[in-house]
Design a protein around this nucleic acid. Structure first.
Lengths: 229, 229, 229, 229
DNA sequence: AGCTAAACGAGACGGTACGTCGCGTCTTCAA
DNA sequence: TTGAAGACGCGACGTACCGTCTCGTTTAGCT
């Protein structure tokens, strides 16, 4: 994940088997310390929030030296990024065969993840730190954003293959239209966030991309959403 | 705006005329110091960004004591909130008679405002601080969000009165669908943001709410969702 | 005492009678404010000590503006100096006819004055401020030291006139020998201070200056230093 | 001296030899920083005086963080107390065989020490702070007062053993009579302080305790207080 | 079994900023 | 002009964390 030196697998793998001991000299890193840091981070994060989280307090809580933390993560941003990425499980990538239903399930999962105070309350902090430390952006996108993109792409691919939407639908934009409002509400407006909202969003988005019922019997469907621009 | 005690209008206003001098005891606050603080905040904000912004540096730059700042704002959050709210001019509330065009103009203005590094780079910082200081949320919404809501409402109201959309369109959701993707891209994904994108968003949203062409000559319009444009 | 401008009597006194109103323009100084300041100073001085005393707290306690204090005293030093000088009453200048007894009474009075926490706890603060502000030295000597010198001089003068000591006794030094140990103990050593101590000091000093019994009947007195006590 | 935790000797000393390294965990305190602080304090103390001395300025001058100072001393009082205690060298404890001469040498040394602006100008500040912080009194007495007491005791012990004074002479009081007037003059009266004065004080004190010439040849000395000088 | 070398806890280090306090001055309105 | 009120620029306070740096100790793999 973010290990700085260690754990960076030396490419050659003579055994061909499972990654053997990397055989570095010196005392190996202590897995218990690692876990203690992550646990402490979680506890403090949920207790006081991202901006009040300090490396010092994590070290104290974990019973660990500050260097032990800095040896693994360059700052609290990547540490937290890794920690909360472990919390965001969008669940299994379901396939109901119904595009609208798939999208609704997906968006509900996103909502659930963002609704965890731990997650929702931490995202803006990370986004903020991305300003001063662009290096933080990459892992963030990798852990937080990529899974969502992947899911939406899969759903839309299936819809295309079923002939429900045109091929040229802008997948990126669809993801933005789905997830953006969730973020906007969670971070800024404070407007309510519940399953009804995600359903409404999905309904609107589905209509906006001209989702057609699954063509059956080779019947040509009405040219819904034809010739827009 | 955020003055803590001063400028709190005494309720009764017997004359009904302009708010007379409240005549608070003691030396009144210095308007030049106030302005100097705001100017310095702006300069430093654009130079170093929100997270590196410091009350101390603002005071230095403004040639002002720290207490003079603390007397007016409880922390840098509300100060910055007020300062950047002055930057977000969505422009005059235009009415082209064309709903799609109105929305496009609106969203482009939002994009322009968010694209200012000063603004876009500051929003997540504020959102972050809102976690530890919920009191910050209110002015934020007042200055940042309310104007947008107001515009969207106006545009949709006109559309309804022209019979282009149904009355029961969820105005709040429309705003979310329009603005959310902008925020999502600006803060997190790093995806490109330009006029094409805003146009695409508007197109999708417009279709999602079943915008009809203006009914003319008493002609009954085609059913919603059909052959728009 | 320390009034800065006011109270400096304009020399000419046209009426020749009692000092009429000086007839200065503007509102006259408020005697109640003056007293309130002094009272507040006393209270705070005894509560928190000299070094924690602040002009600000005095003004608050007295219900008075800071300027009202600064108009009368240039800093807390002279103010306190004046205030505690009012506390040091060495009592009436007694004359028992017995030099030893007179000195003992005097020194006991000094001890009593210095033992007031208000006084003893304040002296070093004033002495300290005299370092940075030599102007403070003068009123200090005037109010605190001069009365003591005066008493010792009077006692020794009577002793000389009675022929108990030689004329060339160093009055200044005698005062130092009497008062110095009191100060030394009170401020620095923390050694006990009580009437026994003052009596011991007096005994020693009296012997050191060769006090003779009052020569009576033209009888030649016994050699100095004989059989005191 | 005043180290807060460090250097606190672990009680048991099994070897009886030199205090072994206590082997406290963590990085040991930096002796050079320690010295730099003391040097800076001295320089600033002599330049600006005690009351204008600032922890902040010491840290700057010493090239040291403020915490590094606070880690060692709780406030400027104890720091200065330790620093100036290093300056008060009463010189070697001489023994001329002549009590009067020994006392004169001692008192002259005291005068010399107190006359250093660094010392004399600092004492009242410390005495003042002892009011608000009684904990300051202890090191003060240890460093400033104890050495004097020790000297006077030694001188008087020798005088007793030579039969020059009675055994029951109040040593504490003698010290007070000697040193008190010096302090009194230095701090408060502003009266001159020179060798003549110390000699006069010694003369008076010596007479006040009935110092007899050294008894020689088993001859019984004349009664106390007789014909000295 | 000894050697080398990294990781570990502890905590000191030079810094920066915090938010507060008090200074002595000033500016307002009301007596 | 005085007085209460309170804002002002300033400087220092003592604290919290930063990220780095020693310490002595522990824990491995490699001679």
């Amino acid at each position: 994940m973010w290990r700085e030196q260690q754990a960076v697998e030396p490419d050659g793998d003579p055994d061909g088997a499972e990654a053997q001991a990397p055989a570095r000299p010196g005392r190996p890193r202590d897995a218990r310390a690692h876990q203690a840091i992550i646990d402490a981070t979680l506890e403090l994060l949920s207790a006081d929030g991202y901006s009040k989280l300090t490396i010092e307090s994590i070290a104290n809580r974990a019973g660990v030296g500050k260097t032990t933390i800095y040896r693994r993560w360059p700052s609290k941003g990547p540490l937290v990024s890794e920690v909360i990425s472990g919390l965001i499980h969008l669940g299994p990538m379901v396939d109901t065969g119904d595009t609208r239903k798939d999208l609704a399930i997906f968006l509900k999962a996103v909502l659930t993840a963002m609704s965890q105070p731990l997650v929702g309350g931490t995202i803006p902090g990370l986004a903020n730190d991305m300003g001063s430390d662009p290096a933080l952006a990459e892992p963030f996108r990798q852990f937080i954003i990529a899974p969502k993109r992947q899911r939406v792409n899969a759903i839309l691919d299936r819809a295309v293959s079923r002939g429900e939407i045109d091929e040229d639908v802008d997948r990126e934009l669809v993801m933005d239209l789905l997830v953006g409002p969730i973020l906007w509400r969670a971070l800024l407006t404070g407007a309510p966030l519940n399953t009804d909202v995600t359903q409404s969003i999905v309904d609107h988005v589905v209509r906006s991309i001209g989702l057609r019922p699954v063509p059956q019997n080779g019947e040509v469907p009405a040219p819904a959403g034809r010739s827009q621009r």
